[in-house]
Design a binder for these strands. Structure first.
Lengths: 340, 340
DNA sequence: CTGAAAGCGCTAACAG
DNA sequence: CTGTTAGCGCTTTCAG
């Protein structure tokens, strides 16, 4: 019953006009305290709730933000979503979630779906929304013509697009250099994405080697194509590389699940970690705590990034001038899988 | 530009009335093919998209479902959200996500927030929305007066509330019995929630012991209060129990992270798994694959449940009579942490 | 098969 | 300080 009531019903019962009810509802100051109380009482009494659609139609906004991500069940993305949703809600915004998968076409579809829903902005969570060629990124540009676009973990120069990211290039370079400094000679780089950010990480690895005058070897840069759930697949993948005679004394990865797979490979082959093989993960997720030894990993300050992203978003929606790019630094969390 | 267009603009350009445009938009059959094409062409040409708010106001629905969950970064819940969102989208519904945390007050607030948004239904993901006393569950009843409520992993008898769950009682009982049959005498039960479902699992454990004429011991039923991220905390928790002199040759848990913590405890104390200690997790998450040996775990067919839940939801919204309760059976996935 | 017109419930000028 | 009124853009009778 109660939520069938309209502002008209309330105005009648309170003996005022709908405008006054609306004012009370929206906290306008220009209402006499007494009438305000009278109206409030009626609202309270009947449990009246304003109709969100009508309000949305009038204001052309329902205070809703679209969250786009490839896969909400990915450990890292799930955390990001959690932080972002929470911060948005604290700022009075709702979150419409839309998981796109990893196909380009469905990314575009999902984005359009959100836009047709009239969201106030779209947050793209994860590096895989920006590819390494302009054509594939056109859909972001197009969307930015309608609403501000917030990118987490991606870097894209475009008006009305705001990026919050970690310097993955530097973080990977640092991690690799620490390994090199500790004496490792043959470092395998294991990654799973060719997104813009994925290639940045790879470049960080490469640059670390070059800085140390170590030639790059193609066979030491391996891309695993499987799912982030397929730890066994990773293990077999590394095993396969190893069985081909390729040798390495260190492994730097672009994601913790790859590091876990590498760890399982080592155990299966009686390779001592960190004695004979050192391993570094990325994202500092719970996965790093599950194996023995536990796994060193790059923490890229996800929560800080999410908080910042929402701040920037809210600022933008409030017509404030906001920085288009905010860059955090990653930090290697040292655990048992490395000895430095 | 394009999405500023209204149905009026289109009707003018097509030389028809807005009613006709609306009919075309909604696929009404009563439109002459030729006019239909004419209108479609204009719509196409100008990239017109109907205003979702206006439509929502008219139809009193924006085809949006609220998803409530304690913590979208929890491995299990994140997966559930992923499956549900995907299935909803395939059925033309959007998902508004709202993470409530584990406090009762904020559960109610979040629910009200969703209802004030005029969602068509609310899905509550996770057992912790139903407590073991009627008073605490009143808020669900109240909400059900407005929209259908879908419960995943919880059991609650109430009109307009639909439950999709796994028989956690039986699954835990089975797992415990298998351990008993394999000869374990002192089985520690490790859990972390007093939700209705949490207590069901506990009862399953207890019943298994009783069936085998083994007296229940309080010190063998331990509730870990920490976060699902705190694997080290779990390890210390079990360690503390052990150091108190309490002995066990098997551990059954209510969540995989507890099993991983138990595994780490065993390793730290040089207790052989599964030789001297067998461990069973719950949820069959990726965590079971990270340690050596890998961990046996109860799979409760999350994806099937989610698919079913959405089917039931869609049916209900289409005014079909749907079953109020759908119960799946869990299945123990045997891995290296058990020897049976 | 098509058009006119009455809402849907709220916000925001504009008057008073 | 309060009321009147004109939209917001779409759906849906009801006539024709």
């Amino acid at each position: 019953m109660s939520n069938q009531m309209t502002i008209y019903d309330i105005s009648k019962k309170a003996g005022v006009s709908i405008a006054t009810v609306s004012r009370v509802l929206n906290g306008s100051t220009n209402v006499k305290p007494r009438t305000k109380k009278k109206v409030m009482d009626i609202i309270e009494q009947y449990g009246y709730k304003p109709n969100a659609f009508a309000r949305g139609l009038g204001l052309n906004s329902m205070k809703t933000i679209g969250i786009l991500c490839a896969d909400a069940s990915d450990l890292y993305l799930a955390k990001a979503i959690y932080y972002i949703e929470q911060n948005l809600r604290e700022n009075g915004y709702h979150s419409v979630l839309c998981c796109t998968g990893y196909e380009m076409a469905s990314r575009k579809d999902s984005l359009n779906l959100l836009l047709s829903q009239h969201v106030d902005s779209v947050v793209m969570v994860g590096s895989n929304f920006i590819m390494n060629n302009a054509e594939d990124n056109q859909y972001v540009k197009d969307a930015a013509a309608t609403v501000p676009i917030m990118l987490l973990n991606a870097d894209f120069d475009c008006s009305n697009v705001y990026c919050t990211l970690c310097d993955d290039y530097k973080a990977t370079q640092d991690a690799t250099e620490k390994m090199l400094d500790a004496g490792m000679q043959n470092i395998l780089y294991l990654y799973n994405s060719n997104s813009y950010s994925g290639l940045k990480k790879l470049a960080g690895y490469q640059n670390a080697l070059l800085t140390h005058d170590i030639p790059l070897k193609k066979e030491l840069q391996q891309c695993f194509k499987g799912s982030h759930e397929d730890i066994d697949g990773v293990k077999n993948f590394v095993d396969h590389i190893y069985k081909k005679g390729i040798r390495f004394d260190g492994i730097v990865t672009s994601d913790d699940f790859l590091a876990v797979g590498a760890m399982n490979f080592a155990r299966a082959n009686n390779i001592n970690v960190p004695g004979d093989l050192q391993i570094i993960g990325y994202n500092n997720s719970i996965l790093t705590l599950c194996s023995e030894p536990d796994i060193s990993s790059v923490d890229n300050r996800l929560e800080d990034m999410c908080i910042q992203l929402v701040k920037t978003l809210i600022g933008t929606l409030s017509q404030n001038e906001m920085p288009q790019k905010t860059i955090f630094s990653g930090e290697l969390i040292k655990r048992g899988s490395t000895s430095f």
